[in-house]
Amino acid sequence: MPADNHPDKHPSGAPWRNFYGRFKGKGLRPSQETYLNEDLARLSPGKVDWETNPERAPLALDALFGGRDVWLEIGFGGGEHMVHQAVQNPDVGLIGCEPYINGVAMLLGKIRDAGAGNLRVHPGDVRDMFDVLPTDSIARAFLLYPDPWPKKRHHRRRFVTPEHLEPLARVLRPGAIFRVATDIPDYVRQTLEQVPRHGFEWLAERPADWRTPWGDWISTRYEQKAFREGRTPHYLTFRKT
């Protein structure tokens, strides 16, 4: 029961936010347990959770990344894209949010292998991260192969809804780039319908602009699954106005 019998509150004091994805899958390998125990706290972006930051004090991003531009990946899956971007862009700081702990463990292993030092990892809901990111603080955001929630009655669970897009628009600076990759046609429809309503301009001028991967793209495990199952990826680029 929520604290103080308040229907909109979590026992921690946080607003009640339904979460529909998975937090953990099959058992972790011993090496992955080691990554979580030894690396996760060190790679934390700061006090994000309500238990550690009930006042929702903003993160000090300049101190965290030395004044570099900051990029945000929303649901990084196994982490291959995030590590790729970190290695290719050492002058940028990256924050990744992923509540699925198996994916977090995979990312931590990739960070060790790559030796990248410009990443921070939040093993939780990006909505909590939105609470503590300063306004106009993020220069680029990625939403890559998000959970499609294919049933019509579940479309409100998708990321491309006002609950997520409003805080995303707040933390992205004017001119920031927002990239969305998906292989689900109806997700494309909802993205093109909803994202421009929240202060974004779709940058496509010709079909190749959404059919062709970005120049710095690395194909992820989710994209490879889409190819195997005969689905066509779409690469949508928006700019915060």
Rank of each mutant, 00 (worst) to 15 (best):
P7S: 06
K9V: 11
F19P: 10
G25I: 11
G27W: 10
E38I: 01
E38M: 03
P45T: 07
E55R: 11
E55F: 01
V70E: 11
I74D: 13
G75N: 09
G75D: 14
G78Y: 09
G79D: 13
H81F: 07
H84N: 12
V87R: 08
N89Q: 11
P90S: 05
D91K: 06
D91F: 02
L94I: 15
I95L: 05
C97D: 12
Y100F: 15
N102V: 14
G103Q: 10
A105I: 08
M106F: 09
L107F: 02
I111D: 09
G115W: 08
H122F: 15
D125R: 06
V126Y: 05
V132G: 05
D136C: 03
Y145N: 05
P146D: 07
D147I: 04
D147A: 00
H154P: 07
H154W: 00
F159M: 15
L168T: 12
R170P: 10
P174K: 00
G175S: 04
A176D: 13
V180G: 01
V180A: 00
V180S: 02
D183L: 00
D183R: 01
R189A: 07
Q194R: 15
H198N: 07
G199S: 04
A204C: 08
D209L: 04
W210M: 03
W210N: 02
P213F: 02
D216Y: 01
S219L: 08
R221I: 14
Y222W: 12
Y222T: 08
E223D: 09
E223S: 00
A226K: 05
F227H: 14
R228K: 15
R231D: 14
L236W: 02
T241L: 11
T241C: 12
